[in-house]
C-alpha cells in the first residue's frame, strides 16, 4: 500500500511537471482565459451594472446566483461543523461533568 501511494505520488509529480510548460504566460492577453468573456466584462460592466469594480460586478451581478450558492455552502459547512463538535463534546462530558 505504501509502495502504491509513493508510485501514485511520483506519477502525479511527473504529470504536473510535464504539463506545467503548456500553461499560458502570466498576464498574457491572448491566453484562453482572457479572450472569451473578460473583455466584455472590462468594457461593459460599468455601463451595465454601475459598479466601478469589476470584481464586485462579476461577483454580485453577473454571477449573483453563484454567490448565493457559495453563501449556502458556507452555512451548510458551519452547521455540519457545529453538529460534529457538539456530539463530540457530549460524549466527552459523560465521564466527568464540567463545573462551569
Amino acid at each position: 500500500m505504501k509502495l502504491f501511494s509513493y508510485l501514485s505520488l511520483g506519477l502525479m509529480v511527473v504529470v504536473l511537471f510535464a504539463t506545467a510548460g503548456g500553461l499560458p504566460v502570466l498576464f498574457d492577453k491572448n491566453s484562453p482565459a482572457a479572450v472569451n468573456v473578460s473583455p466584455r466584462y472590462i468594457e461593459e460592466s460599468h455601463r451595465e451594472t454601475g459598479s466601478p469594480n469589476f470584481v464586485t460586478a462579476v461577483l454580485a451581478d453577473y454571477r449573483g446566483y453563484d454567490t448565493l450558492g457559495e453563501t449556502t455552502v458556507i452555512f451548510t459547512a458551519g452547521v455540519a461543523a457545529v453538529l460534529l463538535l457538539r456530539t463530540g463534546r457530549k460524549n466527552g462530558d459523560d465521564s466527568g461533568v464540567d463545573g462551569e
Binding site: D61, T71, G78, V82, L85
Partner: peptide, 24 residues
C-alpha cells in the same frame, strides 16, 4: 441591491464563525 446581498453574506459568515466558536 449589491449592498443588500453583501449584508446578507456578511451576516451569514459572521454568525457561522461565532457558531463554530461557541461549539468549540
Amino acid at each position: 441591491g449589491i449592498l443588500g446581498i453583501e449584508i446578507g453574506v456578511t451576516i451569514c459568515v459572521m454568525a457561522t464563525i461565532v457558531a463554530i466558536f461557541n461549539a468549540l
